[in-house]
Nucleic acid binder design. Sequence first.
DNA 1: CACCCGCGTAAAAATGTCGTAAAGTTCATT
DNA 2: AATGAACTTTACGACATTTTTACGCGGGTG
Lengths: 219, 219
Amino acid sequence: MILIVDDEPHVRRLLAAILSRGGYDVAEACDARSAMPLVARAEAVLLDLGLPDRDGMELLSDIRRVSAAPVLVVSAREAAAEKVAALDLGADDYVTKPFDGDELLARLRAALRRRGAEPARAVTAGDVVIDTERRSVTKAGAEVHLTRKEYGLLAMLAAHPGRIVTHAQLLTVIWGPAHVADIAYLRVAARALRVKLEDDPARPVLIRNEPGIGYRLVV
Amino acid sequence: MILIVDDEPHVRRLLAAILSRGGYDVAEACDARSAMPLVARAEAVLLDLGLPDRDGMELLSDIRRVSAAPVLVVSAREAAAEKVAALDLGADDYVTKPFDGDELLARLRAALRRRGAEPARAVTAGDVVIDTERRSVTKAGAEVHLTRKEYGLLAMLAAHPGRIVTHAQLLTVIWGPAHVADIAYLRVAARALRVKLEDDPARPVLIRNEPGIGYRLVV
DNA sequence: CACCCGCGTAAAAATGTCGTAAAGTTCATT
DNA sequence: AATGAACTTTACGACATTTTTACGCGGGTG
């Protein structure tokens, strides 16, 4: 949820329209008093400095005290001193009116990306852990060395845990579009993976075959 | 150290003056080729998009690939589409010329503040300590002398401890984009590092090779 | 029942990558 | 001009990986 703090209704409407076009949920506040209760739940704040009940700078440092969410100041004041003050008080960006909607969204995305930045997650299948961020695979805690093709295959399967990945998908991505038909490659690589990861390679539990379609990693 | 990338000498001088007034160390580069080797050591980058040898956007994404340091784009182009593109490629801010020195400094401070004041001073791997702040490397307490390329390689690996750094990343940053294919350089430098840092250079523990991909520093 | 298909398995052949040494080159310093 | 350090370039053997080929099994089909 993105919080808009501005006293002019038409600016709020404009900002709200831009944000919802960008796919965000929006909350609005017209002054400092009504804004503070919403700050805690906001993923980011768009803040106008010219508020009726309170100086915007004070509100900014109050927000910073409560929340680490990005704050983008949206203001009509262009003076560099204003910008410097706001930025040093903890604002993440300072946009002057009139502003471009797409630019505002891009600046918001940039601010959120910096805060968030946690896309990497490890996939677990049985006692096997696949960490695509570090490109490491462990079985029962012990690191397992995989070749490029082996890892490529496992990573593709881990990208869609529990779902079938077709022969064609695997081959085009790992071996390139020219080898869509070389299913033999796939079988050799799958075998190598099973030997390294399965307790009983002859009776695979993790890397299952779906006859005529592809493979799947069970989780 | 803050890196300035701009082809116009007078702009570089201006930026350098502003930065040193703000108390920062400065390094300058006039094109993409000379910039890449400096990126690894930069705490932040001021980047002009209009470079002679390469599209600024490309350089931006290359920088993002090897470094998490803040990038502030400083450009004469005011089009919103430019800003959106740069911000979505990983730029932290976009400042249009002509710019105000104090505002630029404030934006730089904001960007550096967000990056979490201090990003890992010294990296330890076994009995080897890499202090990128002082550019010093010690093994079992004793200082080890490294050449520029050796240190560059080690610093790149230490910037992402435990993770694989690809051949291409290492080569573009240390030797420049023109040598992405000269993997032989890499092997020679890796060998030299191993001789100086590993207990048994023939059986490396610290500087591991990931066949066909790159190298990694184990911690 | 004999056949075919897709699969797993094995192993040989081809290719690619790495480590290593050493010779040649550049460059700053003296 | 001589020196030495750092860097570039080349060559080759050892080893790892990938590709290619061959064969046996088992389940469904005619």
